[in-house]
Amino acid sequence: MTSTSPLAAQPDPSAVGRLGTIRRTGLSIGVATGLYGISFGALATASGLDVWQAMVLSAVMFTGGSQFAFIGVVGGGGSAIGAALAAVLLGIRNTLYGLVLAPSLPRTGVRGIARAHLTIDESAALAASGTTTEEKRAGFWAAGVWVYVFWNLFSLLGALAGQYVADPSAWGLDAAAAAAFIALLWPRLRSRDAVAIAVAAAVVALVTTPMLPAGLPVLAAAAVAVVAGLLPSSGRRAGGPPTRIISKEVPR
């Protein structure tokens, strides 16, 4: 007989229902994001990668933005080194996700490796929508695992059948990606601060897009979060170094 915690032995029915909803959302995200894998596979082979190279990117790199950046540079006639650099630049945000997720996820053994590997936009976003540690975990694993399964499945399909897929954007798959991100962002826009941060980040990303190499605009936008985090809206400033950001409403 295994010992279980009282909480696990007598689960709260409404909490179980919420976990079920989160897991189903994870499956939805997996299917929606996975379908976009068709366009990755198709574009990868059109860019000059073979099917195996496309699948190593989907299975091992497994972070859509970086994968598209990689094949974008190769397809545009850039060097392989340039492609790798673009992918790595775009992947820096996954490090930030790890910082956010670390307290909620197990850190050792196979699951410790798996949590790192499955750390992507979608899993981090669904985890962030959870209110308890259990919900965060359920969201992370559901989105991470399902996206992994469908992303690889559809990448393979796209890579093999790429030449028959005229144009993935004709199916609206590029628009589906934007919709998925706004759907994940939506529940977090409960406060005026959150809306302001999201809008400011969007503006920074758009303004810097023509100036910076692929991947950097999203990171430049992450600076908005750093500034917002440093802004002393909570009034807790004791012990901190002098800040250059001066806000009128702050008692010093």
Binding site: G65, R93, L96, Y97, L99, V100, D121, A124, A125, A128, A178, F181, I182, L184, L185, R188, L189, D193, A194, I197, A198, V199, A200, A201, A202, V203, V204, A205, L206, T209, P217, V218, A221, A222, V224, A225, V226, A228, G229, L230, S234
Partner: peptide
């Protein structure tokens, strides 16, 4: 505070791009 608002900024930027 930064890690709490970071996903909001990253998602906002991803939607825009």
């Amino acid at each position: 505070r930064i890690t709490t608002v970071l996903p909001i900024a990253l998602l906002g930027a991803l939607v825009a791009t």
